[in-house]
Simulated scan of single mutants.
Amino acid sequence: MTVGNTTTQRSADATATGAAVDIEQVAVRFRTKKKDVTALRDVSVRIEPGEFVAIVGASGCGKSTLLKLVSGLLRPSSGQVRLHGEDVRGPRRDIGYVFQRAALLEWRTARRNILLQAEMRGMPKAQARQRVDELIAMTGLTGFEDAYPNELSGGMQQRVALCRALLHRPPVLLMDEPFGALDALTREQMNVELRRIWRETGTTVLLVTHSIAEAVYLANRVIVMTPRPGTVAEVIDVDLPVERDYGPTMSAPEFARATGRIRDLLGATTTAE
C-alpha cells in the first residue's frame, strides 16, 4: 500500500547520476558461538538523489545494519550495495554519519570539534573555516562557536555533530537515531531544524528512528521493516506538503493516515511520540 502520491523531491542532477543509494537483494548473516543469525534478508531499496528517507522497525530488525552497509562499514553476505552507481566495497569518505550520541571531544570547542572532520580529511584550512562559519549560521549555533561540549545543551551538541557530518558537503547523510536521547521538546525543535537544513543543502538523507511520528514528519518516504530477519514490509510515500509547520502537520489527515498505516504494519498499539 502507498499512502498518497506526492512526487518525491529530487536534486537537479538525479537523471544524470541515477540512484544515490541502491540496495539490491541484500542479506546479512552473522555467526555466533551458538548459532547463525540472519539480520537482513532480501532487502532491496532505491533512494534517489535529494530524497529524505526514514527507516522504522522493531529493535533488532536491522535498521542500523542497513546504514553500516551503505557506509561500507559492513559487507553484505549476499546482494549488492551501490552509492551513486559505485559498488560499496569498503568505508566511504563521501558520506556524512550522525549517531545517537554527539561524541564530541570534551577538550575542543564547538568550532574545533567541527573542524576535526577537516583535519582528518586534509581539507584546505581557509576553505574549512569558511564552511564552518556557514554551518554554524545555518544550524543556529552563532554565539556558541567557542563553547565546550559541557557548556552546550544536548540539542546544541547534536547540532555540532550535524555540522561536523556536513562539513565536506557529503552527497549522502546517514543518521542513526540522532535525536533519541533528547527530551521531547528539544527533539521536536531538532526535527524542524533538520528538515529545514535538508531543504537548504539538497543532501540525500537516510534516517533510522524508532519514532513513527518523527519518520513521517521528516521524510518523503518511510521504509517499514519486519522483525528479524529484517526485510522491507512496505514503503510508504508521505503525502504532505514540502513546507511543513510542525503543529499543523501533526494534525493533518495525511499525517494520520501514514502513521496509522505504519502502526498497523508494525503491530503498534500505542501512540508513537
Rank of each mutant, 00 (worst) to 15 (best):
Y148P: 00
I212E: 05
T15S: 13
Y97K: 01
A233F: 01
L104A: 00
A219P: 04
Y97H: 13
D36Y: 07
T203H: 04
G90C: 06
A27W: 00
L67H: 08
R221C: 07
I114V: 13
T139D: 05
Q9A: 15
K33Q: 07
F99H: 10
K68Q: 14
E243P: 02
P49V: 11
Y148D: 00
P149R: 00
P49D: 10
L218E: 11
L116F: 12
S251I: 12
D42P: 10
D94E: 15
E193L: 15
R187K: 14
V132K: 02
N220L: 06
A118L: 06
T249R: 03
V43R: 06
T201D: 04
M225K: 07
K63V: 07
M156L: 11
L265R: 01
Y217V: 00
R29H: 08
S153I: 00
V222N: 11
T201V: 14
S77T: 15
I236G: 09
K35I: 02
Y246R: 02
R93G: 14
S211C: 03
V224G: 11
Y97N: 03
R93M: 14
A128I: 01
Q25S: 09
R261Q: 11
Q189W: 08
L194T: 07
R244D: 04
G202Q: 03
R228A: 15
R82Q: 15
T7S: 15
V242G: 02
P178F: 05
A102W: 01
R92P: 10
G79P: 02
V160G: 05
V242E: 15
E254A: 15
G122A: 10
R101W: 03
M250S: 02
